[in-house]
Design a protein around this nucleic acid. Structure first.
Length: 580
RNA sequence: UACCCCGUGGUGUAAUCGGUAGCACAGCAGGUUUUGGUCCUGUUGGUUCCUGGUUCGAGUCCAGGCGGGGUAACCA
């Protein structure tokens, strides 16, 4: 929906192939699946895989399953199963069926006996170390196990005893008998079953032998009638094995098609590295808003629609590419611009006093309500009332005592518009003994209520504000990239922990317009002229917390930086441009 | 130094049966604007990795190079 070219039918090598299969009658109905292992949380890379498999099925009138690939109880947990389901749904996808690899354990085992009986699998007594040592290397063939020619009946007996729990962990494995000299190492008698006396979150203690990925995945796909088994490039070398198992068991063989995984600048999408960040305490947890986990992105306020639009836009190919972070941000802003309600917030306040503003009998400035549109992009979003008075807070950045010629915000003698309020002209400044700016003094034009001058005169700038006495406090997190390098995994010898951005989260005390006090967790807003912010579920010290999802484009700051202005960012500033 | 995959403007990604390169983002320049946002318009970038070959014609086919990525868990 936010894809700039939604009409254009998606075209890529996978869809081309599916189309061809359909036209040739090789496939009646497309069936795909998303098969995560429940041993961690989903991240933006998974979002691409999910979007692909679910979209492809939908486009061709097919089905898509969610399958939990739970063949290794040592690493998996029910908590992850629940999280995965929630995250897929958050993205907006619904599976036609949900399956678990563990539910196929009985069938998979039966097929193992078939292979043993056909003389295509054998029980190996060697240790893991011995098996690794005899596998050979990338350039040298492996050497056969002494058990390789064990007769089929003996193998069958041993396999049954393995299953019955007669052996200890690691004592024996079942191996496929293929080719120890095969150039593809995966074909050098791969392990099919290993012994693990472990409790499985789904099958309990029913099993003590668990199938390896290769000895399960293809059969799971086959059982479910998957037509196109889409996976990432690193599984390319596994395809011959995938095919070999299906063919030698004699079952339907789905076609595995590999595509390049998603890479985005400044983001890490490796379970292992993400785990290091979380367990090392470098981030607050799996839902830290600076993480590219789906939970982190959600907490940060990234709309799932934007994420999906991004995933669709990047397309699918076999080329290992890295997308600019700017493209991701474009889709986030694009959706938020149309859907997020506008509010005013001042993150680095300086006082603005209107000297000619009327005062009441008590001597205090009177309060007037002004009407503000909730979203100029969406007339149906309505309007709200915002309290305006003679003592306001404005952004420190919006005033300069000695402005350069291209600065057209507030400055001595200058007139600007206070958004939805009045035109004000700066008449002077107040400073403390040390010479620090304390307040900007202005006079206002009563005829410009709402922000329009009856005489038609123009101002060059509109600035946002909040009423000093009405503003509510907030803890605002200005989030930037977690890393200082676009490719944290590849730069600096791969030690990405050295590349953590010390400014990835700057916490400031902001002043918000009163209506924001009613915001609840997950609510997204555009703080006018600043960026998009999301109300966090957790709160700061007694004040609501808002996280910056992404800043607004800022051509003023960009021009400043280009003009050789001091680098870095001010308290309300946006992230500095890309390094090198 | 084995095997597999890949190589189109800054970044990605398109281009029906081979007919002379499109789109998005980014960049630049204008316009509009009660957000220096949005929106609109225009525009700069590509010897389609190289070299040969087939062909009237190749980004698309062939051969050979070069470059990049992947692969040696009883992980997935």
């Amino acid at each position: 929906m936010t894809d700039p070219n939604p009409q254009a039918p998606a075209s890529d090598f996978i869809r081309d192939r599916i189309r061809a299969d359909l036209e040739a009658g090789r496939v009646q109905q497309v069936v795909t699946r998303f098969p995560p292992e429940p041993n961690g949380y989903l991240h933006i890379g998974h979002a691409k895989a999910i979007t692909l498999s679910f979209s492809v099925a939908k486009e061709f009138g097919g089905r898509c399953n969610l399958r939990l690939d739970d063949t290794n109880p040592a690493a998996e947990d029910q908590e992850y199963v629940d999280a995965i389901k929630a995250d897929v749904r958050w993205l907006g996808f619904e599976w036609d069926a949900i399956y678990y690899a563990a539910d196929y354990f009985e069938q998979i085992y039966a097929w193992a006996e078939v292979l043993v009986q056909k003389g295509l699998a054998y029980v190996d007594d060697q240790t893991a170390e011995q098996i690794a040592a005899t596998r050979g290397t990338l350039t040298q063939p492996g050497t056969p196990s002494p058990c390789r020619d064990r007769p089929s009946p003996a193998n069958l007996d041993l396999l049954r005893r393995m299953k019955a729990g007669e052996f200890a962990d690691g004592e024996k494995v079942l191996r496929a008998k293929i080719d120890m000299a095969h150039p593809n190492l995966n074909m050098r008698d791969p392990v099919m079953y290993r012994i693990r006396h472990l409790h499985h979150q789904r099958t309990g203690d029913a099993w003590c032998i668990y199938p390896m990925y290769d000895w399960a995945h293809g059969q799971c796909d086959s059982i479910e009638g998957i037509t196109h088994s889409l996976c990432t490039l690193e599984f390319e070398h596994h395809r011959p094995l995938y095919d070999w198992f299906c063919d030698n068991i004699g079952i339907y063989r789905p076609q595995q098609i590999e595509f390049a995984r998603l890479n985005v600048e400044y983001m890490l999408t490796s379970k292992r590295k993400l785990l290091l960040l979380v367990e090392g305490g470098h981030v607050d947890g799996w839902d830290d808003p600076r993480l590219p986990t789906l939970r982190g992105l959600r907490r940060r306020g990234v709309p799932p629609q934007a994420l999906v639009a991004f995933c669709k836009h990047v397309g699918v190919a076999k080329f290992n590419s890295t997308h600019e972070i700017g493209l991701f941000e474009y889709f986030v802003r694009d959706w938020l611009n149309k859907h997020a309600a506008r509010r005013m917030a001042v993150l680095d306040p300086i006082q603005l006093v209107i000297d000619n503003w009327p005062r009441g009998a008590d001597g205090q400035p009177i309060v007037e309500m002004v009407e503000a549109q909730n979203n100029p992009e969406d007339p149906t979003a309505g309007a709200r009332q915002v309290p305006f008075s003679g003592e306001l807070l404005i952004e420190r950045d919006d005033f300069m005592e000695a402005p350069p010629k291209d600065f057209f915000r507030l400055a001595p003698g200058r007139e600007v518009r206070l958004r939805y309020g009045y035109f004000v002209t700066c008449t002077g400044v107040d400073k403390d003994a040390a010479g620090n700016l304390v307040a900007v003094r202005c006079s206002y034009d009563p005829a410009t209520k709402g922000g329009n001058a009856p005489d038609g005169r123009k101002v060059k700038a509109t600035i946002h504000w909040v009423s000093k006495v009405h503003a509510i406090d907030a803890e605002v997190h200005l989030l930037e990239h977690l890393f200082t390098a676009a490719d944290p995994a590849g730069a600096d010898g791969g030690d990405f922990l050295k590349l953590l951005n010390p400014n990835s989260r700057r916490v400031v005390r902001g002043k918000l317009e009163p209506s924001l006090g009613a915001a609840t967790a997950g609510d997204r807003f555009q703080f006018e002229r600043l960026g998009y912010f999301c109300r966090d579920a957790a709160d700061g010290q007694g004040a609501p917390r808002f996280l910056r999802t992404v800043s607004l484009k800022d051509s003023w700051q960009k021009a400043q930086q280009k003009g050789g202005a001091p680098k870095g960012t001010g308290p309300t500033g946006k992230p500095a441009g890309k390094k090198g």
